[in-house]
Nucleic acid binder design. Structure first.
Lengths: 136, 136
DNA sequence: GCATTATCCTATTAAATCGATAGGGTAATA
DNA sequence: TATTACCCTATCGATTTAATAGGATAATGC
């Protein structure tokens, strides 16, 4: 299940991508427009800023803005930042790999086999979908 | 993230599918072989039995066994029984649909758009993968 | 300069879910 | 008729999630 954190993050990013200019947008503007808890959204945007997706400006006329062209922001980046692993099981995760306690042999594991397929497929979609694609 | 419930359930089903005959297998045998908590596995197999995937036999020589040919058990069935919705967001779920509180218009929602793609793709994989495929 | 604005940061919390455990009841078999 | 093994309910600790609170800090415009 997708967390609200990720869901809200994507919505906020799309909102920013739809802005004509790159002028900063206040948290409260996005939060009201997208029906997101202001404080919760605040922490999400902070994460995105700390990881180089967003820039911010303090004081009057401040807010958040995209640092890159939406075309250059693949969903893989967003998902990994906010949601964490894309794979459904740690043992098939590229960026968050973990061995299973129970499995003696990963290659013989049926769960591993099917979830690897799912991950490959999902990954492909997220890789080929950019923020620009979602903003149309 | 895939729950251990589903993970264990798949492993148990594969174990049963690998049996040459359809003789009942005791919970404890599967639990030991697959490194699964006996009691936890018990509740999982019970769910699978109540939903027509497994049959059971009480008393000496009893245990669980598959009711259908592994070829006729698609992973969609297993996933929906144990994990619940296949979609990452309720608003794109076929069997567990729910409207989002925040979204005024589903068709205009970016999250909806991308997650629909992911669901279609994942669903296709689960549909085309049977228990028999995982048991080889 | 100074008041205003809006981000920045830490801590807390209520609720839900997950994984596991406990303990006995019931039915079938040999 | 004793044994075996599934059946059923209840509980519990740990973790995660979503949200909230309260103030510190920095930048802007007048």
């Amino acid at each position: 299940m997708l967390s609200k954190k990720t869901k809200y993050g994507i919505k906020a990013l799309v909102y920013l991508a739809k802005q004509e200019n790159r002028a900063p947008v206040q948290i409260s503007v996005i939060s009201q427009s997208e029906n997101i808890s202001r404080k919760f959204l605040e922490s999400i945007l902070l994460t995105l800023r700390k990881n180089g997706v967003l820039g911010s400006k303090k004081g009057k006329g401040g807010g958040y803005y995209l640092l890159k062209d939406p075309k250059n922001i693949p969903m893989t980046d967003v998902m990994r930042l906010l949601e964490g692993p894309i794979a459904m099981v740690p043992c098939v995760s590229l960026n968050f790999y973990e061995k299973c306690d129970d499995c003696p042999d990963e290659n013989a594991c049926a769960v591993h086999k099917i979830m690897l397929k799912v991950r490959d497929n999902t990954l492909e979609i997220f890789r080929n979908t950019t923020l620009a694609d979602l903003s149309n």
